[in-house]
Design a protein around this nucleic acid. Structure first.
Length: 620
DNA sequence: CTGCTCGGCGCG
DNA sequence: AAAGCGCGCCGAGCAG
């Protein structure tokens, strides 16, 4: 491909220098295309760094993973073909710092108007090792050239899989939501979570004492506690950071413990236990979220974790770097809005049991959650006597708990909500039999491993030992607990993806300027906020002037209300203060939208609690 | 020295 | 309360 700098080549493609890539994407973005690329995590961070936001995309890697395993597309060419590089391609964001040259990956841009309209496409390839240029190739509608574009080939294969699916609308929605989520993930990493290193230091100093001169030196408070522990256990050298050593020391002191878990220690009455529990709590704070953590992960007032959409089998996100999804409540006071900005924190109330009610079509449970706390509603129905019982009982039903309080609640819940309980029981039975289960939108659980199957087979014969049978039963029940939970957790994750996708679109269309001009009253701004449909239906025709929708693609998203954090069923938006109320409304409206997208008119509500705060610890 | 597992604990 | 699901990260301890 020939010319540099946007000059057309003979086949209708253009090629631009890498330095011009973001500008080219920003220009094309005005036509509201759907970018189809190999991997959002590979392509989008660079665009964001250049100040370019895209409206929508297809993430072929994430979509492929769903389609490969979904029971809704099991007979598709994609699912029945041999595994290829789409199954094994690593996420490429991590390779940026790798010494090895990154493999060539392509991205293709085209419009996803339904066939038979042939897509106009642009394509750019990864920079080759030692090559500073980047290709953008604009194709005409001819199919022969398209066939050479691996992304276009894969995209067609995926479309065929969706078209032939048992329920195309479900899987299509899942792919749209997953891809929208990939955009959110990259944008949140880009914008970061507002984090005050100063407040964090104050918090650590208050709890641990001043920062030690070097890592590895215990802070003053830990030294004090250590001295007490050693004295009270009469063991001047015990290291409480070593579970094995500590358990020996405790037993030498006459304490009958089998581990050093906090919950076990709490049942022991001994003077060494309180300082030991304090020590463990503070030592955890120091190692997980202490000064080293701040030095490592907070830069210029932001924590930039790497979110990994689809990183969990159930469809939840994972994260890496800084433990973003495990931020202890202890340190959330360091998450503070910028001056003149607010944090709007929302979480879905009792999301998983509500999801179960909707999945199972359980009208009684739906009614229990209508316009109130679901667990309160379960109590009001007379099924159980306290909210705590309702909660532990429902969690046990969804996780497969059989013992204790949770197990005792199950028969009562089964009487009051037979459809819901049957639903999770059926999912468990399927797993125990080695079958797969599928979420509402079509994400399917993995098959049990060969080792699992071997254990089952070994227990099948007439001469199987009792030990083998017992092992097989145990493994079967364990996998049943997994599949039981998979349908609920996985569908909840789908709801959450739809929620954040809707939030993302709504926030972008919220009134643009970070601060309103002095002459415009704030009320007028809120009223101008408009909400189109999501997922997007038909893009504007190519030859029509694009409708004015939202700010320019290269408006800085971090200067506008934006998602700053997402934690399974909870979101945080960082917003100029004058838009906080409007943001809160959008979060609620987006939740309504997510419920309708996935469950249509099912009479199940998905309420969210919303708090407008200055720091994260002020939320709920 | 690196790389691995384990115990433990943070989150939903 | 610590059972039943899903994760990531830490230090300790061990193997190579």
């Amino acid at each position: 491909m020939g010319a540099n700098g946007g000059v057309g080549a003979g086949d209708g493609s253009i090629e631009v220098a890498e330095a011009d890539l973001a500008a080219a994407v920003a220009r094309l973005e005005r036509g509201h295309p759907r970018w189809v690329w190999s991997d959002t995590a590979r392509w989008y961070p660079g665009l964001l760094a250049a100040g370019v936001r895209v409206e929508r995309c297809v993430d072929l890697r994430l979509s492929h993973a769903i389609l490969r395993h979904s029971s809704l597309t099991a007979t598709s060419a994609l699912a029945t073909s041999a595994p290829d590089h789409w199954d094994t391609a690593p996420r490429l964001d991590a390779l940026a710092s790798s010494p090895a040259p990154a493999p060539s990956h392509q991205a293709t841009l085209f419009d996803t108007l339904d066939e038979p309209v042939a897509p106009r496409s642009a394509r750019f390839g990864a920079t080759r090792h030692g090559d500073s240029r980047q290709n953008v190739r604009m194709n005409g509608a001819t199919g022969d050239e398209d066939a050479e574009v691996p992304e276009l080939v894969e995209w067609r294969r995926q479309r065929e899989a969706v078209r032939g699916a048992t329920d195309p609308s479900r899987i299509a929605l899942l792919l749209a939501a997953e891809s929208a989520g990939s955009l959110v993930a990259a944008e949140m990493q880009h914008a970061g979570l507002p984090w005050s290193a100063e407040l964090h230091d104050e918090l650590l100093t208050r709890l641990l004492g001043p920062r030690p001169a070097a890592p590895g030196i215990r802070p003053a408070r830990l030294e004090e506690l250590l001295a007490s522990i050693r004295t009270l256990l009469d063991d001047p050298t015990v290291n409480p950071d070593s579970p094995a050593e500590l358990v020996k020391s405790l037993r030498r002191a006459g304490l009958n413990v089998t581990s050093t878990r906090s919950w076990e220690l709490k049942t022991i009455d001994h003077p060494a236990i309180p300082p030991l529990l304090d020590y463990k709590k503070l030592a955890r704070l120091l190692t997980a979220n202490g000064w080293t953590w701040v030095d490592t992960w907070v830069r210029e007032g932001r924590f930039h974790p790497n979110y990994i959409p689809g990183g969990v089998v159930t469809g939840r996100w994972a994260s890496e770097g800084g433990g973003a999804l495990q931020l202890p409540k202890q340190v959330r006071g360091a998450v503070v809005a910028d001056p003149g900005w607010k944090l709007v924190v929302a979480d879905a109330a009792q999301l998983e049991p509500r999801i179960l009610a909707a999945l199972a079509g359980d009208r009684a449970m739906a009614a229990a959650g209508r316009d109130r706390d679901l667990y309160d509603g379960i109590v009001a129905s007379g099924a159980v006597d306290t909210r705590a019982h309702a909660k532990v009982g429902m969690l046990g039903a969804m996780y497969g708990g059989t013992t204790g309080e949770s197990g005792r609640m199950l028969p009562r819940l089964a009487r009051a909500y037979p459809a819901a309980i049957k639903f999770v029981e059926d999912a468990a039975r399927a797993g125990e039999a080695g079958a797969v289960v599928t979420t509402r939108l079509g994400r399917t659980s993995p098959r049990p491993s060969d080792a699992w199957q071997d254990v089952q087979d070994a227990a099948g014969g007439d001469n199987a030992t009792e030990a083998a049978r017992s092992r097989a039963r145990s493994a079967a029940r364990s996998w049943g607990r997994f599949t039981r939970n998979f349908v609920v957790q996985g569908t909840a994750a789908e709801w959450a993806l739809c929620w954040i996708g809707a939030i993302r679109r709504r926030l972008w269309l919220l009134e643009p300027p970070p601060m309103p001009p002095a002459s415009v009253p704030e009320e007028a701004i809120a009223q101008r906020a408009r909400v189109p449909e999501w997922p997007p239906t038909q893009p504007a025709p190519e030859d029509a002037p694009p409708a004015p929708r939202g700010p320019a693609p290269n408006a800085r998203l971090e200067q506008r209300p934006h998602l700053a954090f997402f934690l399974h069923d909870e979101v945080m938006v960082h917003t100029p203060a004058h838009l906080a109320d409007a943001v809160a409304d959008e979060l609620r409206a987006a939740a309504l939208e997510a419920g309708r997208l996935i469950f249509g008119d099912a009479p199940v509500q998905f309420p969210v609690t919303v708090a407008i705060v200055d720091s994260y610890d002020q939320a709920k």
